[in-house]
């Protein structure tokens, strides 16, 4: 009899302890989830301030001129972000154009075309490339890629500002997103059903025809996920880009050998004070960046659904 009573008590206590643990674990979960909301709320608050007369009086920035303006100078407080958005999209698009084919072919090579040892070796190479911090790519960009771009410019009899240019930025971004796209493509390609490929071979297709017409087609959804991740990374990449972008005050600039300015480089360049209009306007640029990332993500995901309809 006594024993049953104790177990009942223990059971009850266990139940309470369980409830307490559950709540104790829910707290950090809610905290972790709250950061996204904190980002939205507080960056909006700071980013809206430059447009309010109550905050900056006569200095306050005209929202329309901010959104549609094509000039950005810190000293007379001229802030126009439109050309920066266009330049950002331009470099991100071209870096993707360079990185995507290289990444997909590399992934094919690693996943399908070589012996296990070589494949493992190349996989590690790509993983290490993915692990290199962006600041190191910035140093590499400024020390090496600028020289490469200078030589390319000389071929076309063009001048660059010491190699700092749109093209340099594009190359640096392409190098940085290549590992991301490659790694996700490898996973997607390896997940393709073997019998699908064998059936293609059995129909008399060559190995290459099979890889391009069946394997890649079946893996396209996963590859596209890699592209979305890569484009997201290049949109948000800041330090390396700001080191090689130059500091174009006007635009938009589509000349590959001219300097450029991206949203992120604008946020980092010439940062000195931690208060005032010049500081707060960077939060406004941050809002634009977040909105741009969300819009592009939605568009790409929509495109992914469209192209993925057979798989």
């Amino acid at each position: 009899m006594g024993l049953t009573v104790t177990t009942k008590k223990i059971k009850q206590r266990n139940k309470i302890v369980d409830k307490i643990t559950q709540i104790a674990l829910l707290m950090p979960t809610i905290l972790a989830a709250s950061f996204v909301l904190l980002i939205i709320i507080f960056i909006s608050e700071r980013g809206v301030a430059p447009f309010l007369e109550s905050q900056y009086g006569d200095l306050s920035v005209d929202l329309i001129r901010f959104l549609l303006g094509n000039e950005w100078y810190i000293s007379p407080n001229v802030y126009g972000v439109f050309f920066i958005i266009i330049n950002t999209l331009y470099v991100v698009f071209l870096s993707a154009v360079i990185a995507i084919p290289i990444s997909i072919l590399t992934a094919l090579f690693i996943a399908k075309m070589t012996s296990k040892t070589i494949s493992n070796f190349f996989q590690i190479v790509i993983e290490l490339l993915a692990a290199i911090p962006s600041i190191v790519f910035g140093v590499f960009g400024l020390g090496v890629i600028t020289n490469v771009v200078k030589k390319i410019a000389a071929l076309f009899q063009m001048q660059t500002a010491g190699g700092i240019s749109t093209l340099t930025t594009i190359f640096v971004l392409a190098i940085m997103i290549m590992p991301t796209i490659t790694l996700l493509s490898i996973t997607a390609i390896k997940a393709v059903r073997k019998d699908l490929e064998q059936n293609s071979l059995a129909l008399g297709a060559t190995k290459m025809q099979t890889l391009f017409k069946i394997t890649l087609v079946d893996a396209k959804s996963g590859i596209f996920a890699g592209i979305i991740l890569g484009v997201g990374r290049s949109l948000g990449e800041a330090t390396a880009v700001s080191m090689v972008a130059g500091n174009a005050g006007t635009g938009p600039n589509f000349n590959l050998f001219g300097t450029t300015r991206t949203l992120t480089s604008t946020m980092l360049l010439g940062i000195k004070e931690t208060t005032g209009l010049d500081y707060d306007i960077r939060f406004s640029v941050g809002i634009i960046l977040v909105v741009l990332i969300i819009v592009i993500n939605l568009l790409l995901n929509f495109a992914k659904k469209k192209i993925g309809r057979f798989s």
């Binding site: 059903r193 019998d195 064998q198 059936n199 129909l203 017409k213 069946i214 087609v217 396209k220 798989s311």
Partner: peptide
């Protein structure tokens, strides 16, 4: 050749 599991291409 026809395989065990139906495997239409995507």
């Amino acid at each position: 050749m026809v395989f065990q599991k139906p495997n239409p291409f995507p």
